[in-house]
Each structure stands twice: as C-alpha cells, then as structure tokens.
C-alpha cells in the first residue's frame, strides 16, 4: 500500500501528489481541491487561518483511508494532504486524490473522503475578515455518532 497522508504548512503540490499516486492499474483519477473562497455569507474574507492537531490528524486520515478501502475495495491509491497556517484566497487548503480502475469508484470514494475528513480530522479554521475574525464551528453531531 502506498497511500499518502500528510499535513503541511507549505503550499500543496497537487500535481506532484497525483503523480506519486499513479500506477498502471488506474484508469481513473478523481481529485478534490478545496480552495479558499473570498467571502462567507457576503462578508469579504481576507485570509483563512488553519490550525491542526498534527499527529492525530494524520491518524484520522489513515483511519479514513482504511474506511474507504472497506467500502470500495477497488480503490487503487488514496492521497490526502491538508495544509495549515495562513492561506490566501484561491490557495488550496486540502487536496484529496483517489485512483481506481474505473471512474465510478473514484468519484464516490473521493466525495465520501472529503465529507468524512470535514467531520473527523482535527483541524480548525478561522476566517479573517477586514473588520474582525471568527472561528468556523463544525458539525459535531456527526463525529460523536459515527466515530465514538
């Protein structure tokens, strides 16, 4: 198994990640790229600040990887990189890559991966506006129900 799970302060090398995951067995590669949006409910965002509990975040991404393989045994490779620190508009905060022999599995698994990552991986973001800042609160109901 050569899946990739990383937390980094540096800009995410999306193409590099894709290349590292490509094997001859893949016929489809689906990449989700989460990027910083310039507004929240109409309020202009200046930057996003991400904070991570790094060792636990890696463990949770690995756990999610195992979950994906149980649900979609045909998945070939899984890659997830989440960035932390201060991010500017349009920069990538998270990139998830799934490869599989055929497209359906890669699409489904990638969609599932980002939804679950947002529920279980211990990372938090703060929106910095021109006139203040606010922590974004996740939906805790899901995590307690499905993880504990």
């Amino acid at each position: 198994m050569h899946d990739i799970f990383e937390i980094t302060r540096e800009p995410i090398d999306k193409q590099g990640l894709e290349q590292r995951l490509l094997t001859g067995a893949a016929g489809a590669m689906v990449t989700f790229d989460g990027v910083v949006r310039n507004q929240t409910k109409g309020r202009p965002v200046v930057t996003l600040q991400y904070e991570a509990y790094v060792p636990m975040a890696i463990k949770e991404m690995e756990r999610l990887g195992r979950e994906i393989r149980e649900k979609w045994p045909d998945v070939d490779r899984i890659g997830m990189i989440h960035r932390f620190g201060e991010l500017k508009i349009s920069e990538s905060s998270v990139v998830i890559v799934i490869t599989s022999p055929h497209r359906k599995v890669a699409f489904e698994a990638c969609h599932y991966a980002i939804d679950r990552l947002k529920q279980t991986v211990p990372i938090w973001k703060k929106e910095v506006f021109a006139d203040g800042e606010e922590w974004v609160e996740g939906s805790q109901g899901e995590i307690t129900k499905q993880t504990i």
Partner: peptide
Amino acid sequence: LAIFPPVSGG
C-alpha cells in the same frame, strides 16, 4: 487529553 471545538477543516 486534547479538548477542542467541533472540527472545521477542509
């Protein structure tokens, strides 16, 4: 023991 608000990565 880590204590934190609901996660909000992504």
